[in-house]
Design a protein around this nucleic acid. Structure first.
Length: 156
DNA sequence: GCCAACGTTGGC
DNA sequence: GCCAACGTTGGC
């Protein structure tokens, strides 16, 4: 049973277009245990919303999918990486990544517009103070975003 | 640049 | 195990 997720990325660093250009990307640099655990639960074929944070405006840029399940994020062992974690050992890696590929570039849906969708009322993306960079979505939440992007207005 | 919110760290 | 301090995130 496929699951649905949301990934945040700062487009100045790595945008949906960057993913589309590259074809796939190991989602490295996640250093939050909850986000890591969500990645460990991902299966090949799961689909995810690609969200642009720290953008003007922030919002949803596309859909991507998981093409490889969780494996150690090697940047944790690289002292020259900004994601280096000196407390992590190769024999017991702390941090994982999944590999994603582009599916569809969406008509951009701003955060402001997302807040108008009733299906997202309980989505943690919209919760005040939310900082989680990888999170699950319900099928209804995922579809509401994609449908709004396609139609430019809410369902129903 | 500001500030609220949150996760993590470290002293005790 | 508690909790204050700190660093980071992310919208504005």
């Amino acid at each position: 049973m496929a699951a649905y997720w949301l990934f945040k990325s700062e487009p100045d660093v790595f945008s949906y277009d960057d993913l589309a250009r590259k074809g796939s990307e190991g989602w490295d640099g996640v250093r939050n245990y909850m986000a890591r655990n969500f990645m460990r639960a991902m299966q090949v074929g799961d689909e995810a919303i690609f969200y642009h944070s720290q953008a003007t405006p922030p919002g949803v840029a596309g859909v991507c999918k998981v093409i490889k399940t969780a494996e150690p994020d090697m940047s944790q062992f690289d002292p020259s990486s900004k994601y280096y974690d000196p407390r992590s050992k190769p024999s017991d890696p702390r941090w994982d990544l999944v590999t994603v590929a582009p599916v569809t570039k969406l008509n951009f849906v701003s955060l402001e517009a997302l807040r108008t969708l009733p299906e997202l009322r309980d989505c943690r993306l919209l919760a005040k103070g939310n900082r989680l960079s990888v999170m699950p979505l319900t099928e209804d939440e995922f579809n509401a975003i994609v449908d709004f992007s396609a139609r430019g207005r809410p369902r129903g």
